[in-house]
Design a protein around this nucleic acid. Structure first.
Lengths: 123, 123
DNA sequence: GCACTCATACGATAGACGTCGTACTACGGT
DNA sequence: ACCGTAGTACGACGTCTATCGTATGAGTGC
């Protein structure tokens, strides 16, 4: 029950995507997932949206295959939740699970990323 | 001056070890450095000690070469400060620099690691 | 000076990672 | 039924990583 992905109900519910159960999420895996510029950008965008986003809603300077790869890494390491909604695949941060396991961690990383972006004049 | 390693004075001051300046520390590098079980254990031990530690003071289930490798990664990514003191090499967390750049990040990771260790019965 | 200890350097190796392009599948609309 | 769109699968490629063993360098103490 920690990784219930059927809560939206109205989805066509075709293929199931494998997510790690909350208890199986490992800190080093999460850190590894976040330790990549592309993935960190994805996570920041998802966090800023506070709503589920289409893969294509997050512009990345890499090919579509690479994009798929990064989303999968984030999902398999327990950082995001993905579910199909028709032809699109919606993405959402697993805030509740992560907050339960590692309170404050994600917010700390996001704040750090914001500070660095401001400091370096990016973003 | 952000990376002054001569503050201890009494050290023999032989070889200098390269450390990134505070402004050059990148979040993804720090996360990557922490995203390894061995290195996370090193950092946790250093944080718990709150004092500088010899490399050999941190027992790791890997060879000495590998140990050296991990310490170098941590240093080159700005997580720890190393300085020679005679034949030993002392290690210390760069808490001030990291706290200045990414407030709360390290503490968040350490707390997360503690919680996970308790949850999994390790530690 | 010599032995001992702490740590490095240097290869070597096996595996993981980020990236790409192309071919393919799934769904939705017309 | 058909096409278009969103995303996957697969194979390839070069790079990076974690690990090791052995040989080497730097200090301490006898």
């Amino acid at each position: 029950m920690p990784t219930d992905t059927t809560s939206t109900g109205a989805s066509s519910g075709s293929r199931a995507l494998e997510h790690p159960a909350r208890a199986d999420i490992r800190l080093t895996d999460v850190l590894h997932a976040l330790a990549d510029p592309m993935r960190l950008r994805i996570v920041r965008t998802l966090a800023a949206a506070e709503d589920e986003l289409n893969c294509a809603d997050i512009p990345l300077p890499v090919s579509k295959s690479t994009c798929t790869h990064h989303f999968r890494v984030l999902r398999e390491h327990g950082v995001i939740q993905q579910l199909y909604r028709g032809t699109a695949k919606m993405n959402r941060l697993r805030r509740a699970d992560l907050e339960d396991l590692f309170p404050g961690l994600i917010d700390g990383v996001l704040r750090a990323a914001d500070l660095q972006a401001r400091r370096l004049g990016e973003d």
